[in-house]
């Protein structure tokens, strides 16, 4: 690999981290909130796909991409609410309901989305931070979508909020020890429903990034499991919103590594590269898990720990 190739490769990884990582960022922040409240929502995959479809459809019908993003969040909110409410019933397994929701969400999106595969919806704008450079690669890598910045701001906000605000503490208390929360007069179920709904909203927005920016079209093969991966990602990020940001970038870069390596001429084993994020997460879990002890940072009420 020559110097030029190395620069291209690193730039591709960096650009990929942002481009591919942004939907990861939103779903993982959503899942992080949900899990902080003590629930796990495996249905984010369905919500992501439903969000992608709704976002595209509404953007096309209204002519405004941002309206589409909001609608995608709204669709995600509704599905998240459904998960939150049903899982508040006794003896409903949140993992099982999540998988059922995955089926329902993708089913609805595919059914209602047939009419929107062909039309062209307006795309989300991006900001060119690379105008100073006359290198096309740099300009392209620094052509960054607004949603990424919103996601970063959100990660910082949530990081601060979970530590230093009243609602953040309530959420964590509910997730760590719901009986104490109840004793203090809070209603754990209501908090969880809200956290799951907001988580759904964020996953829906993540979906709209896929359909309205990158790769920027609606079709049935759009998602390749980003929603399901969010669950692993949150563990990778040790339930910290700011870590979700870094973890999303790492997962994004890992998703870009196969094409990036091939574009500079290293082309064997691309299936194994694409499994890199999973192997990485597995390694992190192995390195940090001990028997008879829950993961540091893991909410105590999370069904994963019981």
């Amino acid at each position: 690999m020559g110097d030029l190739d190395l620069v291209t490769f690193l730039l591709a990884l960096l650009a990929g981290a942002v481009r591919v990582g942004t939907p990861f960022l939103f779903v993982s922040l959503g899942e992080c909130l949900t899990e902080k409240s003590g629930r796990i929502n495996l249905g984010l995959e369905g919500i992501l796909v439903a969000g992608a479809m709704t976002g595209y459809a509404v953007a096309y019908l209204s002519g405004s991409a941002w309206t589409g993003v909001l609608a995608a969040g709204g669709a995600g909110l509704l599905l998240g609410l459904l998960h939150g409410i049903v899982c508040s019933l006794p003896r409903v397994n949140d993992i099982a309901f999540g998988i059922a929701l995955m089926l329902l969400g993708t089913g609805l999106a595919f059914f209602l989305g047939k009419a929107f595969i062909q039309p062209q919806a307006p795309m989300l704008p991006s900001i060119s931070l690379g105008a100073w450079s006359d290198d096309g690669r740099v300009r392209s890598a620094l052509n960054i979508n607004m949603l990424f910045f919103i996601g970063v701001a959100l990660a910082i906000f949530l990081h601060w909020g979970l530590r230093s605000t009243r609602w953040g503490l309530v959420l964590r208390l509910v997730g760590d020890h719901s009986e104490s929360a109840q004793a203090l007069g809070y209603r754990p179920l209501r908090v969880r429903v809200m956290a799951t709904a907001v988580g759904g909203f964020l996953a829906g927005v993540g979906g709209s990034y896929l359909s309205l920016y990158y790769p920027g079209s609606w079709n049935e093969g759009l998602s390749s499991g980003q929603g399901l991966m969010a669950v692993a990602l949150v563990i990778f990020a040790r339930w910290q919103p700011l870590n979700c940001l870094w973890a999303s970038m790492v997962f994004g870069a890992a998703g870009a590594i196969g094409p990036a390596l091939q574009s500079v001429g290293i082309s064997s084993g691309y299936y194994l590269y694409s499994a890199a994020p999973y192997i990485l997460t597995m390694a992190v879990m192995l390195a940090t898990c001990r028997p008879n002890r829950t993961l540091t940072g893991a909410p105590g009420e999370l069904s994963l720990n019981r």
Binding site: T8, A12, A15, G16, R19, V20, S140, L210, Y214, P215, G216, S217, N219, G221, L222, S224, G255, A256, G258, P259, A260, Q262, S263, S274
Partner: peptide, 11 residues
């Protein structure tokens, strides 16, 4: 695989 196709195109 739309995302990977886009990534490949950019690469």
């Amino acid at each position: 695989l739309p995302v990977r196709e886009a990534e490949a195109a950019n690469g």
